[in-house]
């Protein structure tokens, strides 16, 4: 068998990124070897793109020994879905897209139910359904500890009860790089190979490895409207203008990608990866600022995680 070399002519990674890459590959292999039914959560965003790239590296020259699950709320940017389908085709991936049928039936939207309930039904509950249907005992996610305060104490193997609940007081100690993958039937772990990466690391790695991204990450003249201090993409007919709001065109890019009405863009002129990184290195606002769900209430992320959110 001839082994393909994907990195011919590419300069080697700097030792910092190499160490992060090695750690992530180690985690991928360990989970794949110890669990019976692993799955990877794929959200199409930049962290997921890095996660997928690392997974391909970990199992090379073999294929991924697990499927991908995408939780589709029905409110993702059309560019995201198109990108997802391209990636799946290019790498021959096994992707399962899941939407909560109850939420679909009840026509649950961020407007009708509020962002908190919408997120619970269309993301948290949908995720639990997908994991239960596949009887997955381990799910890879792209969460990073630097994202948010309650994530700072997250383990690399995050233990979940049979209800998918996270109990911050009952997490297993994690020493060295020895991970305890033993669970009872029905229990599961969420595994986070990117735990020790920062936002800058993600961008530098994307640059060094030439990882393709959804174009929404780069600035472009886009139709936006301003709501609650956020610049929201306009154009989806389901987003009705409120009194006083108007659609205008601005140079905007997105630092994280989620559901259209809950994802705020930032004014930017960064149209290339170099420019995005340059902007980031002087940025004084963390990336989760664009996420409405984190601002619902204090300890918001911790609460969602206890309930089973990723």
């Amino acid at each position: 068998m001839n082994v393909i070399e994907h990195g011919r002519g590419k300069p080697p990674l700097d030792p910092h990124l190499k160490a992060l890459e090695n750690e992530a590959i180690h985690i991928f292999r360990e989970v794949a070897a110890e669990f019976e039914r692993p799955v990877m959560l794929y959200s199409i965003g930049k962290d997921s793109s890095v996660l997928l790239h690392l997974a391909l590296k970990a199992f090379h020259p073999g294929k991924l020994p697990f499927p991908l699950v995408h939780i589709d709320t029905g409110w993702k940017f059309p560019e995201m879905i198109a990108f997802r389908d391209q990636v799946v085709a290019r790498h021959g991936l096994d992707l399962i897209a899941h939407t909560n049928p109850d939420g679909l039936r009840d026509n649950v939207t961020p407007f009708s139910h509020g962002s908190a309930r919408y997120t619970d039904i269309m993301k948290t509950q949908a995720l639990k359904q997908a994991l239960d249907m596949g009887r997955y005992d381990a799910a890879f996610g792209g969460a990073r500890r630097d994202e948010e305060a309650s994530r700072a104490k997250e383990r690399i193997y995050s233990f979940r009860t049979s209800d998918h609940a996270w109990d911050p007081r009952n997490q297993r100690p994690e020493l060295w790089s020895i991970y305890n993958g033993m669970i009872h039937p029905g229990e599961s772990v969420r595994a986070f190979p990117l735990s020790n990466w920062t936002e800058v690391d993600i961008w530098r790695y994307i640059q060094a490895e030439k990882i393709e991204l959804v174009p929404l990450y780069f600035a472009e003249r886009r139709k936006v409207l301003e709501r609650d201090g956020m610049l929201i993409a306009a154009g989806d007919p389901r987003i009705a203008l409120l009194p006083g709001e108007q659609v205008r065109e601005e140079m905007v890019r997105f630092r994280t990608l989620g559901c259209i009405p809950l994802t705020g863009g930032v004014r930017s002129t960064a149209t290339t990866l170099d420019e995005v990184i340059a902007e980031l290195e002087i940025a004084t606002v963390s990336e989760r600022q664009g996420r409405a769900i984190d601002r619902d209430q204090a300890g918001s992320m911790e609460k969602k995680k206890r309930e089973g959110y990723f």
């Binding site: 948010e148 305060a149 994530r151 700072a152 104490k153 911050p168 007081r169 735990s195 300890g299 911790e302």
Partner: peptide, 18 residues
């Protein structure tokens, strides 16, 4: 980061900072 800690004013677990 955790609410339990804020309430009790103590740090109860290992946290990683970057």
């Amino acid at each position: 980061g955790l609410q339990a800690e804020r309430e009790q004013g103590i740090t109860i677990d290992v946290a990683y900072r970057y």
